[in-house]
Computed example of a mutant assay.
Amino acid sequence: MKKFETKIINVTLPAANSTVDSTSIKLPDGKVIGIAQVNTGNTSGEIINLSILNNGNEVLSPSDLSFSKQQPGGGFLNSLRPVDFEGGYEYNIRLSAYTPSRANNITVQVLFAVVTNQDSSKC
C-alpha cells in the first residue's frame, strides 16, 4: 500500500462582486496523485471552476467543481480525482465564476493526496 499524506485548504468565493478568489498552500515533498473537494453555499448550482497554479502556470486547468468531487467506491485513493504533479512547492488554488455575484459565499475545501518521496518510485 502506498504511504500518503493529505493536506487540506479552504478557499471562499465571496457572494458580492467577485468572480475570482484564490489562496496558496505549500504541499509536502512527493507526488500529488489525487484531489477531492467539497463545497458549501452554491445553492443555485452555478458553474464554479477550480484550477491549480504554480508560479502563474496552470497545473490543473479550470474545470467545474463537480469534476473534483470524491467518487464512491474503490478505496480512498481511487475515489479521488487523479492528478500528477510534484509536491514540495507553493500552489495557488483558484476559484472562478462566470457571474459577478451570487446569493451566498461559496466555500470550497480541497484535499490533496501526496505520496511521500520514499514511496514515489512505486507509483
Rank of each mutant, 00 (worst) to 15 (best):
N92M: 13
L60P: 02
V108C: 12
Q70S: 12
L80V: 00
S61C: 11
S44R: 06
Q37K: 07
P62M: 09
Y89Q: 14
N55F: 15
N39C: 05
Q109G: 06
V32L: 12
V32P: 01
E86F: 00
G88K: 00
T99N: 13
G34L: 11
T23N: 12
Y89H: 15
K26F: 05
S44Q: 08
N42T: 08
S101N: 08
A103N: 13
R81C: 01
Y91N: 01
G73N: 13
E46P: 02
Q37N: 15
D29A: 11
Q37S: 10
G74T: 04
L77Q: 04
Q71T: 13
F112P: 03
Y98S: 14
G88I: 04
T19R: 13
L27F: 07
D21G: 03
E86N: 06
I48K: 09
E58V: 02
Y89N: 14
Y89V: 09
G41S: 05
V83F: 05
G87N: 04
A103T: 09
A97M: 04
N55W: 12
K26I: 14
K26S: 14
A36W: 01
A97L: 04
I93M: 13
N78A: 09
P82N: 04
T99S: 12
N105S: 11
V20H: 01
V108T: 12
S61N: 10
T23Y: 02
A103V: 13
N54H: 15
F67V: 05
F85E: 02
E86T: 15
E58F: 14
V20T: 13
K26G: 02
I33W: 01
I33G: 00
S79W: 06
T99I: 15
Y91F: 13
V114S: 03
D84K: 12
T43H: 02
S51P: 08
P62R: 09
I52E: 12
E58S: 07
Q109H: 03
L111D: 01
V83E: 00
L65Y: 15
V114R: 00
Y98N: 15
T40Y: 08
K31C: 07
R94T: 10
T40P: 00
N49C: 07
L65G: 06
I33R: 04
Y91E: 02
N54R: 15
G75A: 01
D29G: 01
S51H: 10
G41C: 11
S66V: 08
E86Y: 06
I106V: 15
A36F: 01
N105V: 10
F85W: 09
F76P: 08
